[in-house]
Amino acid sequence: MRPDALALFQAQRPRLLRLAYRMLGSHGEAEDIVQEAWLRWSRSDSEAVIEPAAWLTRVVSRLCLDQMKSARARRETYPGTWLPEPLIEEEDDALRPDNLTLSLMMALERLSPLERAAFLLHDVFGRPLDEVADTIGRNPAATRQLAARAREHVRIDRPRYAVPRDAGDEIARAFFDACSSGDAAKLGAMLAEGASLRSDGGGKVLSYPNVIEGAPNLVRLFLGLARKFGEHNEFLGATVIDGLPGFVSRVNGTLQTTALEIEDSRITAIFVTRNPDKLDGVVKH
């Protein structure tokens, strides 16, 4: 092993973790993949590797592709709605540069594993097409088609408006307050007509198994929750969750994250993660 092998790997580790998380939607699985990549790197003839970054990217991507096959099978039997593990982002978070939001992560779920890999590696992480083709085991022409199909699938889900951090925090807090107090007028004003809610409890805590759509339905839902739990809501802080404004709270003692997709100052989508298995990273923050 080359003398600088550890330093080279450590320099790539944040990017590899970011790639694995975007491929799999799971922090724990991403950590396992990157650890396996380190083991393979440490056992390899690293001195013969001309481009360590490309070598490590290829290893992580291929490990993720194998993992995605079993992950898809597990999600077919997942109780209720599946959401990626929430990524709590700080201002200087190294995971921010790829500019993916939670809503885009959900769009990626509709892609095949190869389409997802081609799109992430080429469009998001900027790897050359020939390198991507070699990584996923397809020729460049086929890889270009995979990336193009993926790009078309996710195009409509790209956020059209960036919400400044201060404005996002303000909207997140106002939304929490309106939900807790059961302020129907304020909720109605904040929600876009076609707003939707997805809630992931993993079958372990109370959540809604199906997507709830439409502002009137959501207002009725939040009013009912306010009557039942309004006095037992605790706001733990506004933050950025997978690129979207949001907040962390406890509802009747249960920790949850709420991410908000916002367009023209109105909430168009709400993503609530309550599955305790997905909130270990949130507790650390």
Rank of each mutant, 00 (worst) to 15 (best):
G126I: 14
V283R: 12
D177T: 07
S265T: 02
T143H: 01
Y21I: 01
M68E: 10
G201E: 12
A30N: 13
E47F: 14
E152M: 04
E29P: 02
W38A: 12
L95C: 02
L206Q: 15
L108Q: 15
K228T: 00
I50N: 06
A178Q: 03
E91M: 05
P128L: 08
L19G: 05
P86A: 07
R144Y: 09
I262H: 00
A7F: 11
E51Q: 15
Q12V: 03
P140H: 07
L95A: 06
T57P: 14
L197Y: 06
A189W: 06
R40H: 02
G214K: 06
A148L: 10
T101F: 11
L223R: 10
Y78H: 15
G237N: 03
Q12G: 06
A184D: 07
D242Y: 02
T258L: 13
L218T: 08
T81A: 13
L187E: 09
G230C: 05
G126K: 12
A117R: 15
R165E: 06
D183T: 00
L63A: 14
H122C: 10
F119Y: 15
A162H: 13
V282T: 09
M68L: 11
Q12A: 14
P79E: 14
L63F: 13
E263Y: 01
T268V: 08
G201C: 05
L65A: 10
S61I: 04
F9R: 02
L223F: 09
P14N: 12
H285K: 15
A147G: 06
L63M: 08
W41K: 09
E170L: 08
D157L: 11
D32R: 13
L121F: 09
E36Y: 08
L104F: 06
A238P: 03
S26V: 05
I50P: 04
A54V: 10
H27L: 12
E131Q: 12
P52R: 12
L83S: 06
G80Q: 10
A259W: 04
R266E: 11
R127C: 08
H122P: 15
E263H: 03
V240N: 09
